[in-house]
Structures are given as structure tokens and as C-alpha cells.
Write a protein that binds this DNA or RNA. Structure first.
Lengths: 231, 231
DNA sequence: GGAATAGTGTCTATTAGACATTATTCC
DNA sequence: GGAATAATGTCTAATAGACACTATTCC
């Protein structure tokens, strides 16, 4: 192989919903000499380890597990970005994924000395990101918002059991706009996306039926988007 | 960098519609000694050239141009596949794209001694493909079929000017099922996807209005899929 | 006029959206 | 009973699908 070969990394945009906001997990880069973007915040990621990672998805899952302990997220490939300039060390290409998980405490161990949830505002976060991660994150947010219009993705941002109101709230947080309750329920129940469990959520008011995903691995696609009106 | 780094390639699934079928462009691999999969058919692609390719998309466009001469196709990133075994030369990752172009004569020059259109049948072609290209091609076909339900992608498989009947036929070929004429026209015209040009297609019957894309760069997304009935 | 395809009109069924109403709990 | 949220019902507007019908060319 007489070829100069690009560097290969995997980065993961990990989302959840907490505190009434969409949150993304960022890690702080080491301040060691020679490291690019020392101290900056970045999406969890890094070089593919050809000894440990069987394939790209396994690599993404490993990075997610190292930061959150979550082993079975919703994981989707976002795309890849590669050019001569995005990494000061040379021509590099990253395989970007995005993951949706229920709110989870972060693992402080390992090399992830500093991992934190950041609320999403607009098409990014308020801190400057390393590499071209602002671009990756914007793409992840756009993909998520786009798919939420016609899929069940927000269900993966919630704990295993949830009420329809909580699900609707997750949709509204990601979309940034209110949805009509009746239409929302008809749609969700009609799609067979969830099934009721024999428990209710108690509160200072009428208890709410709890549901769980009928298929916790696969999202459901609706044949119509929400609010075609504004389209 | 003490890292063993994966090999990096770009592959492109190039589609068109001709002879009443969806066609994909394949190239025959060299039979030289040491080359993997000698003589097998494969998607056009190969190693990223860090000297010539500014970024991944430029690399994909270069490969498309080398085979077809087309410079401005509809080009979309399909995803990436990387693992330890897909290339006998070592851990490799490919960035896959898919392109839609109007029927075009192939360029016989260059290293593409043998490039041919193959009709798509089912989720692939009838010849055995090199590497994991059968998997890539199946993913490309699935993506195309899926998006055709709710986008204007088939318009990119036609020449610059076309009639609504020709556009409908392109949809039907990709989808593999008939569409209702009236609903189709209402939808296409209502979406403002095309605009009439001051010419008609003559034939042994009533001439048909010719249209062109209003925006030849960007696809249109419909808010509803075709035939939600069967969904 | 006949064949062939282009293009339009009418009707119905489905369903999202808006909004009102009823239901069930805690205090 | 009052507050709060859950859950359902009713009405309307939009539109896809089915299918019939009209229009325009060549022969």
C-alpha cells in the first residue's frame, strides 16, 4: 500500500431529555501537550481501535458505554465527514452516530474525567466545540428534529415506562412546538407503537396509564408528518 | 500515532432509469495478481486520495465523473461500513454514496476498462459483487425505494425536461407498483416541484407538456407518503 | 372516425386539527 | 367541592384514491 491513508475516528452525539430540554453529552478533551483542542468540549469519540472494535457500530457502542454505562441505546448512523483540514494531525474522516437514551447518571471513571450534559439551544450548544463537532452536532440535531416529525424516536429518550403525556412532552421538547393532545393520542395509539402495562403513574390528580414500547429496538414510521399545515 | 489505522475507501451506487428498469452502474475489477476479487463486478470506488480529494464528497464526485462524465448528479451520502473482514487487506471502512443521474453513455477510457449498467432485480443485481458491495447496494436500493415514497428523487433519474407521465413512470419503476394518475399529478404540481417549459413532447397522440425541475439541486419532501393505505 | 395518450372533474373515505366535554384522583 | 391532569367525543377542513370523463394529436 503506497497510499497515505486518512485517519479514522468515530464520534457519537448522545441525546436525552431532562429538565424540560433536549440535552447532549459532551466530554472535555485532555489538556496534555500535543493533543489538539486541549480543554475544549467535544462529542465523545476517538480513533477506531482495530484490535478491539469488530466494526464501526461496535466502536460507537463502546464509546457510549464508556461514558454512560448504557449498552442498548437507540443508535443510528448519522453520516461521515472527512477532509484534509478538520483534524490538525492530517486528512481525517469520522463516522458519526447519534444515540438516544433515557436520562442516565454519567460515569466519572475511565478517561472521561469530564463528561456533562449540555442543553441544546438552537442548532447547537453554547460552548465552543473541538474539531468540526459543531457541524456534526448541528447535523445530528437536524436529523433528530426532522425524523421526530414522522417517527417514534422521542420514545427512546424516555425510561422504559411512560405516560402518553410524557411522550407528548418529549415530542414537544424536541420539536420546539406544542402538539394537539387528541390528535397525538390517536396517532400514537393507532400506530400500535406502545402497549399499556398494568400500572399507572400516580400524582395529585387523575392517574395516568403507563405504556411501554411494543418493540424497544425498532422505531415506528408514520405515513404522515405532524402538522403538514405549516410545510 | 502509534495506531494501526483502518483503510479508507469511497464507493458510489450510481442509478438511472432505462429500458423500463432501474439500473445501477458496476465496474469490473482488474484481474492483476494481488488485487482482491479479480474480475468481479463492484460499485465504482476505491481509496481516498489524500493529495487530490479535498473531502469525501469530492472523492465520490471524482469517481462518478471518471465513469460517466457527469459532474452534477444528485448525490447523497448513504452511510459507512467498516469492519475487520470486509477487505482481505485489513480493517477497512468505506464511505458509501448514492447518485441519481439521467441515462448517460459510459466512458470507456481511464482505468474503468469495463463499466456497465445492470438492471436491479429485487434488492440487488444478478451478478456476484466484490467485497460487501451486495450489502451496500441493497442498502442503497432500500434507501432509494424508501425515499421515493415521499420525495421527488425520481425526477433526478430523468433528462432535464420530461413530461408528467414520464415522471410518473419513473416513480412506478422504482417503486414497483402503479400509481394513480390524478393523485400523482395533483401532488407533483401542488408541491411546486416542477415548472412547465414552453415546449411539448410530440407523439402519435396528444402532445404532452414538458416540465423541468424548479430547483435542480434540491429534492422536495412531501408531508405524506404515497398510499398510506398499505402501510 | 379510431387509437392513443394527456389532462381534468367528481365523489368518497380517511384523518389531522381544533376545541369541548367527561373522568378520576388528591387535597 | 376545587384543582389538576387524563382521556374521549364532536365537528370541520384537507386530501388521497378511485374512476369517469373530456381534450388533442396522428393516422
Amino acid at each position: 500500500m503506497a497510499w497515505k491513508n486518512p485517519l479514522t475516528t468515530v464520534d457519537v452525539a448522545i441525546f436525552t431529555v431532562a429538565d424540560e430540554a433536549l440535552q447532549v453529552l459532551l466530554v472535555q478533551r485532555a489538556a496534555a501537550a500535543g493533543e489538539p483542542f486541549p480543554g475544549d468540549w467535544a462529542l465523545p469519540g476517538g480513533f477506531v481501535d482495530v484490535e478491539r472494535d469488530a466494526d464501526l457500530e461496535a466502536c460507537a457502542l463502546r464509546k457510549l458505554r464508556e461514558k454512560t454505562g448504557v449498552a442498548t441505546p437507540y443508535l443510528e448512523q448519522l453520516g461521515s465527514w472527512g477532509d484534509a483540514k478538520r483534524d490538525p494531525r492530517g486528512w481525517s474522516a469520522t463516522h458519526a452516530y447519534f444515540a438516544l437514551i433515557a436520562p442516565a447518571p454519567l460515569r466519572a471513571d475511565g478517561n472521561a474525567a469530564d463528561a456533562r450534559w449540555f442543553p441544546v439551544s438552537g442548532d447547537g450548544v453554547r460552548v465552543k466545540l473541538a474539531f468540526d463537532h459543531a457541524r456534526l452536532l448541528a447535523a445530528a440535531i437536524a436529523r433528530l428534529r426532522g425524523k421526530v416529525e414522522y417517527t417514534s424516536l422521542p420514545a427512546f429518550l424516555l425510561p422504559k415506562e411512560f405516560t402518553l403525556s410524557e411522550l407528548q412532552r418529549a415530542y414537544e421538547i424536541v420539536l420546539g412546538r406544542a402538539l394537539e393532545k387528541s390528535a397525538f393520542r390517536t396517532r400514537v395509539l393507532g400506530a400500535g407503537l406502545v402497549e399499556p402495562v398494568a400500572r399507572t403513574r400516580q400524582g395529585p390528580n387523575r392517574p395516568a396509564q403507563l405504556y411501554r414500547l411494543r418493540n424497544p429496538r425498532k422505531p415506528v414510521f408514520f405515513s404522515r408528518a405532524f402538522s403538514p399545515r405549516d410545510a
